[in-house]
Design a protein around this nucleic acid. Structure first.
Lengths: 136, 136
DNA sequence: GCCGTAGTGAGTTGCGTTCTCAATAGCGCC
DNA sequence: GGCGCTATTGAGAACGCAACTCACTACGGC
């Protein structure tokens, strides 16, 4: 066991770099397409592998959308939550003191907490304005 | 335009009834199989359609699992959250005063809240005991 | 420079969900 | 009660995402 695992490769770097450049959540497929557009020959499977690695180390956030999972770069490994605009995809990282509630509720019900999901969806000021003037 | 929308059909009733009988979250496929076992000739597509309708009216809760979406009956149209055992699937409905935080955080960032997801995963007392005695 | 092996890419497979479309059956109307 | 319109249904096909397979590549230790 010499721990040679996790070699540094161009592909992983490319995925991380591309993810950093995207400010909003992006799907693995989109990221793959974006890399291919830039001339990379990276494979879809590699993009998935890299993204899963990144999400496991806490370098990336994962969001479960209707069509699949979306990824987003997240420098700090700290746990946080998201406020996402349902129209334009704009994302804000927010702090919600929900951890203590999770602890409390779990204890009350005899559960040992493992993980929790808290994501908020709404419409940002811009999209809300557009909506008001257009629809209805 | 006479608004004849939403006819009452046996199939929808069957789906709702089967969902009510299941205390834990169940997948659309499982529900379909269960109905077929009972002699129904209902189609998978119809199960999906009915479940989506139910979740839209708030009569059913949806949970995004790794393998797909899980449904659960929820008589009260009231909003609540879940504490789910990752091992046995046991589910407890819990009240978490997260709504006020959603309001607050949304307002701070200029968002109009639409919906939010808060689900907690852990291990129930029984499964935790089993885990301790078995593994490690 | 050489070698062993982790990592990669193209294609394929598997699975859950949605779509298509002809057939069926609610429901309003007479 | 019977008629007609059309929402709904069911079977299978199609779709999309994610994971797997396997031969090939290239990283990194020697």
């Amino acid at each position: 066991m010499v721990e040679v695992t996790h070699r540094q490769t161009e592909q992983k770097a490319a995925v991380r770099s591309a993810l950093e450049k995207s400010t909003d959540f992006i799907s693995a497929q989109d990221l793959h397409a974006r890399l291919r557009d830039k001339g990379s020959t990276i494979g879809l499977a590699t993009v998935y592998r890299s993204l899963n690695d990144l999400s496991q180390t806490g370098e990336a956030d994962v969001l479960q959308s209707g069509t699949g999972q979306l990824f987003r770069y997240c420098g700090s490994g700290e746990h946080h939550h998201h406020l996402v605009c349902v129209d334009c995809g704009k994302t804000v990282e927010v702090e919600v003191p929900v951890e203590e509630w999770v602890q409390k509720v779990s204890q009350t019900n005899g559960f040992t907490p493992v993980r929790h999901v808290l994501d908020m969806y709404g419409r940002c000021a811009d999209c809300e304005a557009i909506r008001r003037s257009t629809a209805r």
